[in-house]
């Protein structure tokens, strides 16, 4: 039995050795990119999420300021129910359009866990990506670090952009359909999009391309599970910013993941 981390001496079985190389390249790439993604999230995404939690927890309330300049609250002479529109709750002073976001801070236990889980998620992505690269190589493709960039972008499109097209990254406190239903749609969309993009990349005839388009489009034609009512307490401005940033961080991280994974895998494979 060779110790797991001793890669200097080659083991006897080429199969075991190859498995080790697959795992090592994928996990190193995944962990490194997980760390990068975690830092990007802490700087760009977490402040928006913390801001949203102020609304989720009721410390701030959205859209209740009766004197808001742009809500048209004054111009309702013919409102049908002017008296009972839910102004009973005491309204905090810094409500409504208060736009001060919590600064970039570091909450050690909470953000430490986030870093850990981001590394775990990207290690998982890295393993899937390297497995797919090895499979493509078995089928005659060549993987270089430069091509890894395209693999990363395709991975982003399949695993993050495609599901986000139906279920945009949401903040705490937003209205949403049942979690299990959304998870089923999410997994189905990722699987269908992955096969679809694979067929676009490696398909050789129009049947493959037609199947690819059907697979990529189907989840969105069927439609993601949506909430029955939009009753979330968080401001749409924050939600939009959150979705944009989550997707942007995903694109950057996945692109680097593709580069690292392809580079490490092609190197370790040649070794």
């Amino acid at each position: 039995m060779t110790p797991p981390m001793m890669c200097v001496t080659r083991s006897d079985s080429p199969a075991t050795d190859m498995l080790q190389r697959l795992l090592t390249s994928a996990l190193i790439a995944g962990a490194a990119v997980g760390l990068i993604a975690a830092l990007l999230q802490l700087v760009f995404v977490q402040p928006v999420l913390l801001h949203a939690e102020l609304y989720e927890g009721g410390e701030r309330t959205h859209f209740v300021a009766p004197s808001g300049p742009d809500h048209g609250a004054e111009a309702d002479p013919d409102a049908t129910a002017p008296a009972d529109q839910g102004h009973a709750a005491p309204v905090p002073q810094d409500n409504g359009s208060a736009a001060g976001a919590p600064g970039i801070g570091f909450d050690a236990p909470r953000d430490g866990l986030s870093i850990l889980f981001t590394i775990m998620v990207y290690a998982g992505y890295g393993l899937m990506l390297v497995a797919a690269m090895a499979f493509a190589e078995n089928n005659g493709q060549k993987i270089t670090a430069r091509q890894g960039l395209i693999w990363g972008i395709a991975g982003f499109a399949a695993v993050q952009m495609a599901p986000a097209f139906g279920l945009a990254p949401g903040m705490p406190g937003m209205a949403a359909a049942d979690t299990t239903t959304r998870a089923v749609w999410w997994v189905a969309t990722v699987v269908a999009s992955t096969i679809g993009f694979w067929l676009i990349a490696f398909g050789r005839n129009w049947v493959a391309f037609a199947a690819a388009i059907a697979l990529v489009a189907a989840p969105h034609l069927i439609g993601a599970p949506q909430p029955s009512a939009y009753a979330g307490p968080t401001p749409p401005e924050l939600a939009a910013q959150f979705a944009g940033r989550a997707i942007g961080v995903g694109l950057v991280s996945w692109t680097i993941l593709g580069l690292f994974a392809a580079w490490l895998w092609s190197r370790s494979r040649e070794a």
């Binding site: 999230q41 981001t118 993050q160 949401g170 999410w186």
Partner: peptide, 12 residues
């Protein structure tokens, strides 16, 4: 994993 699930766009 709460914050990560939101940030990565998993259903939460």
């Amino acid at each position: 994993a709460h914050d990560v699930r939101h940030a990565v766009g998993f259903p939460c």
